[in-house]
Structures are given as C-alpha cells and as structure tokens.
Design a protein around this nucleic acid. Structure first.
Lengths: 138, 138
DNA sequence: GTGCTGTTGAGAACGATTGTCAATTTCGCC
DNA sequence: GGCGAAATTGACAATCGTTCTCAACAGCAC
C-alpha cells in the first residue's frame, strides 16, 4: 500500500483506461474485455483483470462487488460514494462529509482504528421507475 | 419476493441456524459447512448454501461480500449496519438513523426511488491494533 | 400408515478470477 | 538509434466459490 509503483505505460493499459472512462456505469471485467475485443483490440482477459486491479489500486477506478462479480468504474480520485440505479446502472458520485465523520466517530467509540467504510445506495432512477410503472400498467 | 414462504423445518436447517448463531463473527458458507461436519453432522455443502440463503431472505441473517466470498452472520431482524474488525472479524451491530435519513434524502434529491443502501465500516479493533503494534515493535 | 411435496446429499457443472510461462514490449542507458 | 534487463502480455490451464441436477428421503396433512 506504500506506493511501490514501478508502473510501465502500455497500449493495453491505456486501452483499458479509455474503455473504462467511456462508460459512466459500473462494468464488469468480462464486459470490458468483450467491448475491447469488439473494437478490434486483441487484449487478453488476464490483462484486463490486471489493468483494472492496477487502476483500482491507484485510485483511478472504483470497484464494487455485485452479484458474484466485481464491477469497475472510472472515478474521481477523491474519496466519495455512489448512488447506483439497480436497473440501468447509471451512477451518481456522492460526497458525504457527514457520513465520513459519522463513520470515524462510531469506529472510535468502539475502539476501532483505521476505519474504512463502504457506503453505497442502490435505487431506481427516475427513468427506470417511470418505465417500470408503464410496464406494470400495461 | 412477496413472502411465499412454505418453509419446512428440518434438522439440517436447524443445525445451520444454530451453528450460525454460535458465532458472533461473519463466517463463510464453506467454514460453516466444515464446522458442521466436524460436529458429526452429515449435511451437504449445497444444503448449507440453501439454508443460509433462506435465512438471509427471511432476515434472520446478514450477508456481505468480502474477498470473493459471501459471509453470513446471525443478526437482529431490525435494519442495521456493521462495524467489522478486518483482522479478527469481530462485529458490532450499529443503528444509524442519521445515515438512513441521509440515504433517503440523497436518493430522492437525484430522483431515485426505492433506495436500499449498503453501509459497513471496516477497521481494526482495539485488541488487534494493540497486537499489531506489538508485532511491529518486535 | 399413506401419499404428496419440499428437502437433502453427492457430485458434476459452471463462471469469475488468478496463475503459468514463453514471447513481446518498454524504457533507461550508452 | 541501438542494447539489454526487466516488466508486461496473451493464451491456456488451474483454482475456487457457488449453483445445478437428480434420485433418495423426510415432514406433514389426511
């Protein structure tokens, strides 16, 4: 964790970084690999996994587990949380100073140190909610 | 999802429920299966998975993903969050009305409905922190 | 007890992720 | 610009947690 980063810049890593930035939703490593392949790239699956892990380690991407697979998303390097549509995957980055403080306070109150926290909100975005309402009515 | 619960009570399910209650940490399905086997039970791994999924669905257990596997823990049926020691696994249940409200408010502000949220704090409990400090000094 | 039906257990199947290793590419250095 | 060491890549195999399948079994109402 102490920045031992002898990272070499390669086409593949750049390609993964770009493909990730191109989406504003969380995507799986598998999906990203497929997308790259369809764009004519020849990257290997293992390389995509390695690149994503590197990006996540460098704080350039966020990772979250959902449904047995790990999803990645390019993100701002500052600490933040997510509001995610569970239907279309659209994601909003949230700042939550209040929650940060709460987490730190609660951890300290129980004698815990070095608190990290996972705070994500899943819901149905306005569009998906409307679409589902229409479907239900039909 | 609307409580179609024609659940039959069997020895195996009871055994899983008990084994889960016996621990106040999050445990993996695999670990629980091993523990049951060592107690002389003959439950199958698939049954443990099914029982745990059922308990989680009924709100009698909490599930969280960590390190590629799903961990379970018996819990109070009311909504709550967790403070978890990332070293020894000791867990404290938290109530967090403030966070609930924040989550609902933020979701609504972005037009999201039916918000669910994941809020967990990982840290090092006092004992583990002390132990690690001692190890580092050595 | 009898019968229907949900449940079980063993093992196979599955899917995501990680490891292996020879071939290739990057990058500091001359 | 060219060299060489070392990191990186890609194809494939291996691994690991979880789910599926299916015949045998057990709970519960009658």
């Amino acid at each position: 964790m102490t920045d031992t980063t002898p990272r070499r810049s390669t086409k593949q890593r750049e390609a993964v970084r770009e493909a990730l930035s191109a989406s504003d939703e969380f995507v799986s490593a598998q999906a990203l690999h497929q997308a790259l392949r369809q764009d004519g790239s020849t990257v290997g699956l293992a390389t995509v996994y390695r690149a994503l892990a590197a990006l996540a380690a460098d704080g350039e991407a966020d990772a979250l587990q959902a449904g047995g697979e790990v999803l990645y998303r390019a993100c701002t390097p500052t600490h933040h949380h997510h509001l995610i549509c569970r239907s279309c995957g659209r994601t909003v980055e949230l700042e939550a100073a209040a929650v940060e403080q709460w987490a730190g306070r609660v951890a300290a109150a129980h004698g815990f140190v070095e608190p990290e926290h996972v705070v994500d909100i899943f819901g149905l975005c306005a569009e998906c909610a409307a679409r589902r309402a229409a479907d239900d009515a039909r």
